[in-house]
Write a protein that binds this DNA or RNA. Structure first.
Lengths: 224, 224
DNA sequence: CGCTGTCTTGAAGCGTTTCAACACAAGTGG
DNA sequence: CCACTTGTGTTGAAACGCTTCAAGACAGCG
């Protein structure tokens, strides 16, 4: 039990929206946090579910996706430890528009809607942090719309790899399956496979297994 | 001058994020609001400009767009009176990612960054309203990404018209030029023109001038 | 009225999707 | 640990939808 609570504290203090709080305030947050585990493949929430909690990833990985009007799956983002979700629907009355699914065995810290709203009003600085997070997420979303609408797959893929390289150095790790990456980039697995093969033929990258890419010519990728 | 201040009050009280405030608090907001006018075609801010103010549209219309990596223009949204912008960059340190341009003669109410942040901390309920607004904007942006990535132009256009019809009844008014609409939908003016002509041949709609559409078969549009 | 930008229409070319077949990897149960 | 099953990834060929370029029609604005 000691260990369990230790995990929760670790979880909450990981999250950018809380990590500026004093120890005392943090303890207050801790009291409304509940822990929950999901196995790989389990769904945290469906589109249409009533939104009633903020979900913070402690261990594992979660993917957020939508279904389009015609029923196709659209990957939106991957949550790593410290990332959170569920907020979207908290502030509009209503239900989730997206699906959240654990892609590995995952541990989540949850804060109920009412508790979170109380925290926001009591500590306005939390709101500012959430606003920051929303801003950058909106920014990335609009950038993604722009890319899918105006660039071809080759370019979208090159930019995606180059951005991974900014944090991962020149051996980058794909955070998702190629199937999901195809969906994220707004294309099909077949086209993704062909474009990656092209990059390899041109000597721009080299695949090591299914999820590792060695970048051999970053400038070449960006000049596409 | 009396008239000028009257306009400003009207402007601020229009905005959903402020309209729950008491008269007294509203007066406090009024003191930090500055008015500014833009002629049709003038730019409110460029991508790369430092973000230093919240812009609220009082009269007129503003379009928000991005440039993609390859230099193409991507329409993101249209601001009508009561809508606001400029917030994105306020919460991240840094600069605007998008362009804001007046598409008609427009009057804007501005609140400087520092003043707005003070208001947010003093009246936490304003934050909740801004979070609501961000939530729904993020929701729409992710929906747009999904549509551009998974639906064909025909479907995206049909959905766009159908959604206009929800507010406008069965004679809808396009809020922007067809050139901009093409960009918004992630296609070219040529393709947009062809798809609209198709809808007209099939008896689904009827164009009246360049910006008015009479919807003749809404169900037909949605079953595409 | 004439200019400028927007809109339309046609024809050709291109990138992407689709379908199908096969290779491969991961996970399960004997 | 191997065989089996299931899902993921690859490769080819054909079809499709969209973009591009070009030319002309139309609308808006000084």
């Amino acid at each position: 039990m000691e260990n369990h609570l230790g995990n929760q504290r670790y979880c909450v203090s990981l999250v950018p929206i809380f990590n500026h709080l004093e120890v005392e305030q943090m303890n207050e947050v801790m009291q409304v946090v509940k822990s929950r585990s999901f196995k790989k493949g389990e769904i945290l929430y469906h589109a249409g579910d009533e939104a009633n909690a903020l979900h913070i990833v402690n261990r594992g990985q979660v993917k957020i996706y939508r279904l389009s009007e015609s029923g196709k799956e659209q990957m939106l983002r991957i949550l790593m430890p410290g990332d959170f979700t569920g907020e979207l629907a908290l502030f509009q009355e209503g239900s989730h528009e997206a699906y959240a699914e654990a892609t590995q065995d995952t541990q989540i810290c949850m804060i109920r809607d009412e508790d979170f709203q109380k925290l926001l009003v009591k500590y306005p600085t939390i709101s500012l942090k959430v606003l920051e997070e929303f801003s950058s997420r909106l920014d990335r979303s609009e950038q993604q719309t722009t890319r899918v609408a105006t660039e071809k797959v080759e370019t979208r893929l090159a930019l995606f790899i180059a951005e991974l390289a900014e944090t991962d150095q020149d051996r980058v790790h794909l955070p998702m399956s190629k199937k999901d990456l195809a969906s994220y980039l707004g294309t099909t697995p077949e086209t993704l496979s062909r474009r990656l093969a092209e990059f390899e033929e041109e000597g721009l990258i080299k695949m090591k297994g299914q999820r590792e890419i060695v970048i051999q010519d970053l400038d070449g990728l960006l000049f596409i």
